[in-house]
């Protein structure tokens, strides 16, 4: 008698524990983007990745379509090679542009994809041709000042 109730409690306990793990996986985390089975990998070269980090989101039209898998330095082209894990449900044309963008003024950096017009879709392991590097604040400011100086020069 006493044993049966004890078993019941332990059963409930284990179920609650597994339930909590499921809640953490499905409700708190996002299980679907990272299962290996339904994803494909593509690559892109950037002159400058800025503050992009592994696991940063890849968005197209604001929707998360994948995540950055790894970032490496390509010692032959002197550029950064970014590996991306893409959700299998989303396919992009071969002339898609990848740009490194920032969410908000000081937010985290992510990769934005803009689909092109090609009829051939990207396949596993292919590399994007069109990329746009991260905006580096110092470069932008110095360029701005340089332009201002160039504008103001002749008028004086």
């Amino acid at each position: 008698m006493e044993r049966a109730t004890l078993d019941l409690w332990v059963g409930l306990f284990v179920m609650a524990g597994i339930g909590a793990v499921l809640v953490l996986a499905l409700k708190v985390g996002n299980l679907s983007t990272f299962s290996v089975g339904d994803s494909y990998a593509i690559y892109a070269h950037f002159d400058n990745v800025g503050g992009l980090k592994p696991r940063a989101p890849i968005k197209s039209a604001g929707v998360v379509v994948g995540r950055v898998a790894d970032i490496q330095f390509d010692n032959e082209r002197f550029t950064a090679r970014v590996g991306m894990t893409m959700d299998n449900r989303y396919r992009f044309p071969r002339d898609t542009t990848a740009s490194i963008l920032t969410s908000g003024l000081l937010g985290e950096q992510y990769i934005g994809l803009d689909g092109g017009g090609d009829s051939v879709m990207l396949k596993e392991g292919e590399t994007l041709k069109l990329t746009q590097s991260a905006v580096v604040l110092e470069k932008m400011i110095s360029q701005f000042l340089y332009n201002k100086a160039a504008e103001g020069g002749p008028s004086k």
């Binding site: 793990v21 953490l24 996986a25 409700k27 708190v28 985390g29 996002n30 299980l31 990272f34 696991r55 989101p57 998360v64």
Partner: peptide, 19 residues
């Protein structure tokens, strides 16, 4: 609250490592 959480918490990196 939920969507930002889900976008940032990774199942393998965060949940699994915690376990």
């Amino acid at each position: 609250f939920w969507s930002q959480m889900q976008a940032a918490v990774d199942v393998r990196e965060d949940v699994l490592n915690g376990i």
